[in-house]
């Protein structure tokens, strides 16, 4: 029996050191050399103050900012300490209610806007931390933000365009707008 138990135990120890310590430390070491910024969370600092990460979405509910997608994290939306999706099914009345509530909030903030609301702006993301909205969702909110800030819509449109990422290599994923970066750029205009 010890011909089986001893090698089992020793193999577990040896492979634990190899794959559980040496390997992750090696990746950490190389990452610190080649891409420290990304490895540490792509953090955004302003005058030594940490304002967020360009990969983690933040909540915005002031009409002068672009709003992100609904977030299902608890207890507050965009809780970075506890990522979560809504997990509500497509026939669940609670999901329909959530969509209607978000739709009403958007329309209330911009009553004259009669354009259809893009679907991503009323549905909760998978992570609850989605940093992006679709270009359609940015365009839908553009006039509201321009009015709240009293700036020329054309100027705002070119700012949005500057913060719109197209498909990677013109092929992969979906075009998207980074909400936190766009809103920080808006604040920097003044």
């Amino acid at each position: 029996m010890s011909r089986i138990l001893l090698p089992s135990l020793l193999s577990l120890l040896v492979f634990s050191v190899l794959t559980g310590l040496i390997y992750p430390f090696m990746v950490t070491g190389i990452a610190a050399l080649c891409c420290e910024h990304q490895a540490q969370g792509s953090l955004i600092r302003q005058a030594d103050r940490l304002v967020g990460s360009s990969l983690i979405g933040q909540p915005f509910d002031d009409p002068k900012y672009f709003w992100p997608r609904p977030s299902a994290t608890t207890p507050q939306p965009y809780n970075g300490a506890s990522s979560a999706g809504s997990n509500l099914g497509p026939t669940n009345p609670a999901q329909l209610d959530a969509v209607r509530t978000q739709l009403a909030a958007l329309q209330q903030a911009d009553p004259d806007n009669k354009w259809p609301v893009p679907i991503d702006l009323v549905t909760a993301s998978a992570s609850g931390l989605d940093p992006h909205i679709s270009p359609a969702a940015a365009e839908y909110q553009l006039m509201r933000v321009a009015r709240a800030r009293a700036i020329d819509p054309q100027r705002l449109r070119s700012l949005v365009a500057a913060h719109t990422q197209s498909r990677q290599w013109a092929l992969l994923g979906e075009p998207r707008v980074n909400v936190l970066e766009l809103n920080l750029a808006l604040d920097a205009l003044h």
Partner: peptide
């Protein structure tokens, strides 16, 4: 709601999906 795919959005069932 605008649910169809277009050049400006993925469209479709976006509940529980990420924009990117």
């Amino acid at each position: 709601l605008a649910q169809a795919a277009s050049a400006q959005q993925s469209g479709g069932n976006m509940e529980g999906k990420e924009t990117r």
